[in-house]
Amino acid sequence: MATACKWVIRIVGVLYLVALTLLLIGTFGLFGQERDPLAGVFLMPLGLPWVLWLDGVADAFKPWLAILAPALNLVILALACRLLRREGT
């Protein structure tokens, strides 16, 4: 079970880094790409359910919180794996 947890965390972490990279490339038009207003769309599914709760937040903070939401999910996964590892011993 511990190995599966580690792999899930690694896969979600890599997906998060890829989504952040695509956000930077699309937002700033790096590597000759056109600027794309939907560059952060890949962060949304990784940040669920937290991105759905951003309605009451000021508009200036929404992009930053949407960027950090997948990191919160990674922390929750790591804590759940640690808890499962403790219960298994």
Rank of each mutant, 00 (worst) to 15 (best):
82 R>C: 07
52 L>Y: 10
70 P>E: 11
12 V>A: 04
31 F>I: 12
89 T>Q: 09
51 V>R: 14
30 L>C: 06
66 A>R: 12
28 F>Q: 04
24 L>S: 05
32 G>P: 09
73 N>Y: 02
67 I>A: 12
30 L>D: 08
13 G>T: 13
64 W>L: 13
53 W>I: 12
66 A>Q: 13
15 L>V: 08
17 L>N: 07
38 L>C: 00
67 I>G: 02
52 L>E: 13
55 D>F: 08
58 A>L: 11
54 L>A: 02
34 E>V: 08
40 G>F: 14
23 L>F: 11
61 F>Q: 07
65 L>M: 11
16 Y>K: 00
83 L>P: 00
25 I>G: 01
63 P>G: 01
61 F>L: 14
51 V>M: 15
83 L>N: 02
41 V>N: 03
72 L>D: 05
3 T>I: 10
10 R>F: 13
11 I>N: 04
72 L>Y: 08
39 A>E: 13
82 R>M: 11
42 F>Q: 10
11 I>V: 15
30 L>P: 07
8 V>Y: 00
88 G>P: 00
11 I>F: 11
34 E>K: 09
33 Q>C: 06
65 L>W: 01
71 A>R: 01
31 F>A: 09
64 W>P: 03
23 L>Q: 07
67 I>T: 11
20 L>T: 11
66 A>I: 10
4 A>D: 03
48 L>G: 08
45 P>Y: 08
81 C>L: 04
19 A>N: 11
9 I>D: 03
76 I>G: 05
35 R>K: 14
54 L>W: 06
69 A>S: 13
27 T>F: 06
54 L>R: 01
46 L>V: 09
12 V>K: 02
22 L>V: 06
48 L>E: 14
86 R>Y: 03
42 F>C: 10
60 A>M: 12
77 L>S: 06
38 L>K: 03
11 I>A: 15
80 A>W: 15
26 G>W: 13
64 W>I: 11
84 L>K: 05
26 G>P: 03
26 G>C: 05
57 V>N: 00
2 A>N: 08
48 L>C: 04
75 V>W: 13
28 F>N: 01
2 A>L: 15
80 A>N: 11
3 T>L: 13
78 A>R: 09
24 L>K: 01
10 R>Y: 12
14 V>R: 00
21 T>G: 14
53 W>V: 14
57 V>P: 00
64 W>S: 12
82 R>L: 12
79 L>F: 15
51 V>C: 15
20 L>D: 08
76 I>E: 05
16 Y>G: 00
4 A>P: 01
5 C>D: 10
26 G>Y: 11
83 L>Q: 09
75 V>E: 09
21 T>Y: 07
45 P>F: 07
55 D>N: 09
20 L>R: 05
36 D>C: 01
63 P>W: 01
67 I>W: 09
71 A>F: 14
37 P>H: 14
1 M>A: 03
5 C>M: 08
72 L>F: 12
9 I>G: 05
42 F>R: 13
29 G>D: 14
35 R>A: 08
77 L>P: 04
73 N>R: 07
18 V>R: 00
46 L>H: 05
53 W>M: 15
46 L>S: 05
33 Q>M: 13
7 W>V: 14
34 E>T: 09
51 V>I: 15
82 R>P: 05
46 L>M: 06
79 L>W: 13
42 F>K: 04
67 I>Y: 07
28 F>C: 04
83 L>M: 08
38 L>S: 02
37 P>F: 15
